[in-house]
Design a protein around this nucleic acid. Structure first.
Lengths: 195, 195
DNA sequence: AGAGTAACCGAACGATCGGTCGGTTCAAGG
DNA sequence: CCTTGAACCGACCGATCGTTCGGTTACTCT
């Protein structure tokens, strides 16, 4: 068993700094010089901990994707009426988004310029399809409205949920993750009109 | 009156090419070399038409912002019951988003790295506030539900609308702009449950 | 105290960045 | 036919990109 030798960086602690800067400046807009300033170590020292810029990206988006897929394995997402399972997934997605905010933020901004980015986009598509099937099942059972196409509705609901990364900030005293999740569930299922 | 001397580029036609590449690779991920390849002219020739990379960005986001603000000046957005005015703005935002898709897409992705980007973010905030006030008025009149905070609801509705740029493609035979707008209005006001 | 090594650094690499410059091509107007 | 100027080009600029390398520091273990 190896313990930390001194108060220093690990790939994980370095990652948290990198992800913060990536989200502030964009991945392409962030240079290794920016990262070294933010981390307080020299540019070359970063390569002692990670293989390069792209490994940091891969570690970050992997963490976000693992969190999302884990939701689909939860019991409430697997058993029960489709509409209830959908509600559970929507609620947990919001909570996961907020819990792993910087990592999911980075994931949602990937454009596909590198191999790592294309891999992330593929896994995202897989996840989207899994949720779309849930909505489809709920529609087939007549538990949600059928006058809006399933694919279209899925994309719009995803859009609402994913947009949280654009404005949610944990530091300022606003709504908690549970409160945001509750608001999303209400709007997704009942809309703005009185319930 | 000056007519086009030969079949050549103008700042506007060059802009449409640049915006397409910006959206594919991201603004920071796009080099002038990328633009010159896509436009079919040399890198230095681009500078004959525009002052540089940032002017292309500014022209693009200006066009998107002008389109959005024009919606607020339309009669149906100024007179009538707040909830009806809100519905009109939501519907027109979707149509505008789709009509000016590449320009709005670029606008929604600026991060604030340059002066132009920060200016765009400021104008976006202004627009958001104007719509938030509309929702607030509708809530005060009891026309929409009050159990979800106005600021939160505004952000979520914006999130749903803005997410359209992430998946809508005019070439493939999918929903038309009117159909998407109708779907958004239904989900925003009534949600997934049966109306 | 001395060996071993994780952590770190400054300097420099070739490549590419956004942008400049002097000069060439080519169509319109007199 | 000749001048004019918009359109365009290849070559190049200093700066910065992600990354590498040789060497130094500082901590742990014996």
């Amino acid at each position: 068993m190896t313990t930390a030798r001194r108060d220093t960086y690990t790939p994980e602690t370095l990652l948290s700094v990198a992800v913060r800067v990536f989200n502030e400046r964009g991945y392409d807009g962030t240079s290794m010089e920016h990262l070294s300033k933010a981390a307080g170590i020299s540019k070359s020292s970063i390569y002692h901990h990670v293989s390069g810029k792209e490994e940091l990206l891969k570690r970050a988006v992997s963490r976000a994707l693992d969190g999302l897929f884990a939701i689909l394995d939860e019991e409430h997402a697997r058993v029960g009426r489709p509409a209830d399972r959908l509600e559970h997934v929507v609620r947990r997605m919001v909570e996961m988004l907020i819990a792993e905010l910087p990592y999911v933020t980075l994931l949602l901004r990937v454009r596909g310029n590198t191999e790592t980015e294309r891999w992330a986009l593929d896994r995202r598509r897989d996840f989207d399809h899994r949720v779309a099937e849930l909505l489809k099942a709920a529609a087939a059972d007549g538990e949600v409205r059928g006058d809006v196409e399933v694919r279209l509705a899925t994309r719009l609901v995803f859009g609402m949920i994913n947009s949280i990364v654009e404005w949610y900030r944990p530091d300022v005293r606003g709504a908690s993750d549970r409160e945001v999740a509750e608001a999303v569930v209400r709007l997704v299922f009942s809309g703005l009109r009185h319930a």
